[in-house]
Each structure stands twice: as C-alpha cells, then as structure tokens.
C-alpha cells in the first residue's frame, strides 16, 4: 500500500487508511537546516560556487602579508613617489613628473599599479579588503544580534516595551540612511566616543562598524518582530507556558531557535549591504581613517583622481563588486532554499 499514489486514499477506506499508512511507512524527519542544505545543493549550484568564491576572496585578503612581504616587497602605507621600476627592460617612474601614477604592471611590484602617493595598489587592495570585510562582517553580526534581541523583546513582551522599541526603530528608519551614517561618522571621528568604561579613539574601526550596525537594525528587527508575534501564538509556545516555563526561557529556548533560519537568510545580504555602506561612507570621507586603506576610501580616492588613472577607481571598485556580488548570489540561493519572504532595502 505504501506504493499507492496519495490521491487514492480517499477512495480506499476512510480515516483508518491514514492511520494504517502512518504505521507502515517510516517517516524521515529532516531538520529545516538539512532540507535547506539539500535544496541548495540540488537546485542552486551557482549559489554554492559564489559562496565558495566569497570565502576565496576572504582568504586572499587574509593572506595580504604574504603578498606584501613576498612579490610586492612593500607595505600598504609606504610611498614610492620618487622611485623607478623596470618594465620590459625600460626604467619607468612609479609616479610620473606631472603626478600620473603607473598603471598595472602585472608583475610582483605594482601588480595593479600605484596610487597618486606612489603606494602599491595591489597591496593596499588586499589590506583594504581586510578592513572592508572586517567592518562588513562585524557590523552585520552586531545588527543581527541587536535585531534579534529587540525583535524578540518587542514581539514577545509586547505592550509598552513594544511601543518603545518600535517607535525607536521608526525614528532610525525615518532618517535618511546615509545622512545618519555620515552625521554619526563626522561627529564621532572628531572626538571619538566615551561612554563610561568604553573608549573609542577617533580612528577606531569600531566607529564605522557601530554606525553601520545601528543604521541597519530596523531593516532586520522589523521582520523579526513580526515573526515573533506570529510564533508566540503557536501551540508549542502555549505548551511551554502551560508547563510553567518562565518567559525568559520561552524566549531563549522556544522562540530563538525558530528565528535562526531568518537570521541565516539575512546575514549574507546584511554583510553585502554593510560592505556597500562602508564604501559609501569611505567615499564621503567618514569611513576608515587615512592612511589606513579600505575599499571604500580607495574608491573615494580613485574617483577623486580618476583623470590621472582610471585603474585607481576600477581596481578597488571591481574587487568590491565581485565580493558583494558573490554574497548576493549566495544569499539569494540561501533565501530560496529557506524561503521566508524577506526583502532588504538599500541605500542609494
């Protein structure tokens, strides 16, 4: 009977058939994680390829010192303004007399050319990638953490807490994203930040991380709150309550695990957006402090000096687009695999 098509049950003996069936066939329960992973593997190999590409890009950036100390033989800050380099047997200035930096040489030194200060673009690209990726990942994690905490509190406790949290999110939401980011960036990078024991220097990388994290909280906290509102009415929460579980424990061990797929779906897209926002802040001059490189500040410099060499903008921009694209394609696949409906708004 197990081989019968499902539609025939109704004609074969009423409800009893279902019970019998349930007894015969062993049902394989798969966790949503397993299901999603299987769907991802089966339907969306492209997403996996791009996920691997992202990891590869991370690995390359982490290996920055190997390139810097090896073939390039310089560091991201050192300028070679007055030096020359031999290309095809000819001596060439790293930065020509009228200030035009050398383009890509495709050899160890100045592989991707130099910038207007005579610094090695490839080396700065790798070290800048470390900063951009660090800021992007850290900001996305903090956003997720804050969003989950606020979303659970607002959705589960409701009442006054919900009002306070939701209205606060409304205010952040109503702020033009970039204006808020730039305003906070300018304000904090002047004098740093001091809240009790926490001290942030003016050049600290935590400043852009925190700004980006805070700006994106509403985009994630709102859908999570909505989900918690739906979850708290489910039978398993009622059962937990009937058992006499404390609200804090229900939140931690009943609600939280059910949010994990939403968080997983959001994370790659959040990292992608955070990297993009870091770039925008860098372009507007409030990101990572010079001379420290990041893709955002490098693109900003490149755009400023684009007339003396388009490679200054193309190289860091291309790397950033590749990274963000990898995250977006991977994230898209993950979302399809888990399939909760979610959209992320972005800055422009």
């Amino acid at each position: 009977m197990a081989s019968e098509p499902a539609t025939d049950y109704a004609f074969q003996g009423g409800p009893g058939a279902f019970e019998e069936e349930a007894g015969h066939e062993e049902v394989h329960g798969l966790s949503p994680w397993r299901l999603a992973l299987r769907r991802l593997k089966r339907n969306n190999k492209v997403a996996i390829v791009f996920g691997v590409l992202f990891l590869l890009l991370v690995a390359i950036c982490l290996a920055a010192p190997l390139w810097a100390n090896g073939p390039a033989d310089t560091d991201p800050y050192k300028n070679h303004l007055t030096e020359t380099i031999v290309i095809d047997g000819k001596k060439t200035n790293v930065v020509s007399l009228d200030g035009v930096p050398i383009g890509p040489t495709w050899q160890g030194k100045f592989f991707l050319g130099a910038d207007t200060n005579g610094r090695d673009t490839a080396v700065r690209l790798l070290y800048g990638g470390r900063n951009s990726l660090l800021i992007g990942c850290a900001a996305a994690l903090i956003t997720a953490l804050l969003a989950v905490i606020l979303g659970i509190l607002a959705g589960f406790v409701r009442g006054f807490t919900d009002t306070v949290v939701s209205r606060t999110l409304d205010v952040i939401w109503a702020f033009p994203v970039l204006l808020l980011g730039v305003a906070l960036g300018t304000a904090l990078s002047l004098g740093g930040l001091e809240i009790g024991p926490i001290k942030l220097g003016a050049g600290s990388k935590l400043i852009p991380i925190l700004i980006i994290a805070i700006v994106y909280v509403p985009y994630m906290a709102r859908p999570i709150r909505g989900q918690v509102l739906a979850l708290r009415e489910k039978e398993f929460v009622e059962a937990a309550r009937a058992q006499g579980m404390r609200p804090s424990r229900i939140m931690l061990s009943e609600i939280l695990p059910n949010l994990s797929s939403t968080v997983i779906v959001f994370l790659p897209l959040m990292v992608a957006n955070a990297i993009l926002l870091e770039a925008a802040l860098g372009f507007l001059g409030v990101g990572v402090k010079a001379p420290e490189p990041s893709w955002g500040t490098m693109i900003g410099d490149g755009v400023k000096h684009i007339l003396s060499g388009p490679h200054l903008a193309i190289v860091p921009g291309g790397m950033l687009v590749l990274t963000v694209l990898a995250l977006n394609v991977f994230g898209d696949g993950v979302r399809d695999a888990f399939d909760p409906r979610s959209t992320v708004r972005m800055e422009h």
């Binding site: 770039a279 925008a280 693109i299 755009v303 388009p310 903008a313 963000v324 694209l325 422009h348």
Partner: peptide, 20 residues
C-alpha cells in the same frame, strides 16, 4: 545575474566610471 550585478555596484562608482 544582471539584476544581482546591479544590486552589487556602489552607485558612486558606476557614476564616476560613466562620467569618466
């Protein structure tokens, strides 16, 4: 793929390259 590339590009970068 085209749409995802569009989403992944910083507007000021595209703008600067178009300008150039």
């Amino acid at each position: 793929i085209i749409a995802l590339i569009g989403i992944s590009m910083p507007v000021f970068w595209v703008g600067a390259l178009m300008n150039y």
